[in-house]
Computed example of a mutant assay.
Amino acid sequence: MPRFHCPEPLTPGAELDLPPGAARHVQVLRLQPGDTVTLFPGDDPGGEFDATVLRMGRSDVHVRVDAHRATEREAARAVHLLAGITAGERMDWLIEKATELGAASITPLVAERSVLRLKGERADKKLAHWQAVAVAACEQCGRNRVPPVHPAVTLAEWLGTNAAPVDGGGRLLLSLRPGTRPLRAAAGGDGPLWFLSGPEGGLTPAEEALALAQGFQPTTLGPRVLRAETAPLAALAALLM
């Protein structure tokens, strides 16, 4: 059954117009009145709703909200990803796959070696695009909670508002420095976890030192050097699957 994100209050028996993006998708699928779809709000109260198409307009689709299902497909552990912004479409791919794998939130990191620099209106548009990528990934993979994609920040800016481990959670830094611990050993426990990885070329020594001073522990994924968009996904898969 087609699934659509509908960030509006959903109540069984209510009738509403689908958001423009979902309506366009229904039109493309050539659904007809009487066909059923699945809607999910993306946040509280969670779960998903059956819905029936009542009317197809030229650009709008009117539906009736039916039964609610308290179905959740979230990972047992909250892992928050801080990922250095990668070049081109690689960041889109990273956000899409991180959402599918179950990341609790995603913070694009403007690292010293990041090629892409975002400011002002361009930053706002890119953030909206990345959040839409996460929404589409939830529609595809079955998640009923859309992970927030936070505004892009530097590591210093993030640490300025997150100076201490949150809720007793752990902090891990993907690093090639000597003395790193394997991921599974470093990530012991089941509390929330913040995982930091850099862009192409990795974090600079100064950035690593800053992270280590704020409680991040260095960890490794093994002897091979993975690409910037591959490494955080490998970590999420190991932690959440």
Score class of each variant (00 low, 15 high):
K119S: 15
P218V: 12
F4Y: 14
R177L: 14
C6W: 00
L174R: 01
M56A: 08
G215Y: 12
R181K: 13
W130V: 06
R224M: 10
A137M: 11
L203I: 03
K126R: 15
A209S: 14
P182H: 08
V110Q: 14
R145F: 07
F40T: 06
D50T: 13
A134I: 10
L116V: 15
A156C: 02
P33K: 00
P218K: 12
R55I: 02
P165Q: 03
T230E: 07
G142C: 08
E15G: 02
A137Q: 07
A234K: 11
A211T: 07
V61D: 00
P178N: 06
P2H: 14
E157W: 09
T154K: 05
A206T: 06
V110S: 13
L94Y: 12
V133C: 06
K97L: 11
G169S: 03
L82S: 02
P19L: 09
A156M: 05
L233H: 11
R181H: 08
R55L: 14
Q131F: 03
Q217N: 02
P20Q: 09
G198N: 12
D35M: 02
E74C: 11
P223D: 04
A134E: 08
V63T: 04
A187K: 04
P148R: 08
N162G: 00
A228D: 07
P20W: 04
R77N: 12
G57T: 10
V149Y: 05
L236I: 10
G34P: 07
P20I: 06
T230I: 14
D167N: 13
F216Q: 12
V37A: 05
A213K: 12
R3V: 05
R3A: 03
F40M: 08
K119E: 15
R55T: 14
V65E: 07
A70T: 13
A235C: 09
D167Y: 00
F4D: 02
R64P: 09
G47E: 04
A152F: 06
L221Q: 05
R73S: 14
P45M: 02
G160A: 04
P192W: 01
A136R: 14
D60S: 15
G202Y: 12
Q140G: 07
P147H: 09
E100I: 10
V28S: 04
E121P: 06
D66V: 02
A22L: 04
R113D: 07
L82W: 15
L109C: 03
H5K: 05
P192Q: 01
Q217P: 00
E200C: 06
H150F: 09
Q217W: 09
G215E: 04
P41D: 00
A103M: 02
R181L: 14
L18F: 06
A22C: 05
P205R: 11
V115M: 09
R69C: 10
L109K: 00
R3N: 08
E112V: 03
F195N: 05
V149D: 05
R55P: 00
A132Y: 00
A14L: 11
E15A: 02
L196N: 10
W93Y: 13
V146G: 01
V79H: 12
L10K: 00
A123I: 05
A206I: 01
L236F: 11
A152H: 04
L196A: 10
G142V: 08
R171H: 06
R177G: 01
W158G: 03
R73I: 07
P41E: 03
A83D: 08
I85W: 08
Q217T: 15
H25V: 04
T107N: 06
P218M: 10
